[in-house]
Design a protein around this nucleic acid. Structure first.
Lengths: 133, 133
DNA sequence: CTTATATACGCCCTGCGTAGTCCTATTTGA
DNA sequence: TCAAATAGGACTACGCAGGGCGTATATAAG
């Protein structure tokens, strides 16, 4: 409940790592060994971050990843939404198909939860990767 | 990911309901029918809220529940922690046994996540049930 | 004292999402 | 041509949220 996924954690650690080596190219192997993260899982996380244009990938031998923009311009929120793919909401009514919620029409707490949702988004958006180093 | 549980939602709805009828005694049956919530699930939620001293239970015929204190003095955080039972953390290192986290010793983002954790707690603590009515 | 109406509480089942593994394809530098 | 790297699909194992069911206990009312 209210937990970040391991994928997001791994993503943040990887991004922090790349930033900490002055944006020099880093490989999945290198990062996964250093922080003891399952290679395959991390690999997929990196692929998502690449598609989300948060990092840049270089294929082939001597390849790897660098940040696509400065660490000050990457928020934790960016990382979360790119990795999760879907809109992150504390309740179903703030995600994909609100009406799917079993209590949608009778729900009396949509508005107050909306306030909380808004505040949470603010917290995650204002925290930048540069503050993690 | 980052979602409140249905139990917490049900708890908030129930508490809001009781507050909205001026703290008159309310039954599980009444609430579950009005908001289309599975009775058994709601019943257990109410039992936890009772044990957590957020509401008061009256057993037997004509029984039910009332709030244990004013709606202004019940925060969303109170409801969450009583219903979940365990410490709520966005990562394993803020819950029961931090060392169980698979990357605990190598984790480089404990501190920044701690800041986020702190901010989240603030958001949930400052929102009172009285704002839900 | 009996009955109807409540809460209290434990057990179990099911579905879904998270995390992780395995395997193959593709790219590219040396 | 080979080795090192990313790209990505298929599959499995596991935990937990959500819900259903059965039973015990308390109590107001007739």
């Amino acid at each position: 409940m209210l937990k970040l996924s391991k994928k997001v954690e791994y993503g943040l650690i990887a991004i922090r790592h790349i930033a900490s080596v002055n944006n020099h190219i880093s490989t999945v192997k290198e990062i996964s060994e250093k922080y003891i993260i399952p290679v395959d899982v991390l690999a997929k996380v990196m692929q998502k971050l690449t598609k989300g244009k948060i990092i840049i990938s270089y294929q082939g031998a001597m390849g790897g990843y660098t940040l696509a923009r400065k660490a000050e311009e990457i928020s934790v929120m960016d990382v979360i939404s790119v990795i999760e793919g879907t809109q992150v909401g504390i309740a179903q009514c703030f995600s994909e198909v609100p009406e799917n919620c079993s209590i949608y029409t009778n729900c009396t707490i949509k508005n107050p939860l909306g306030k909380i949702q808004h505040n949470l988004e603010h917290v995650f958006s204002s925290m930048k990767v540069s503050e993690i180093i």
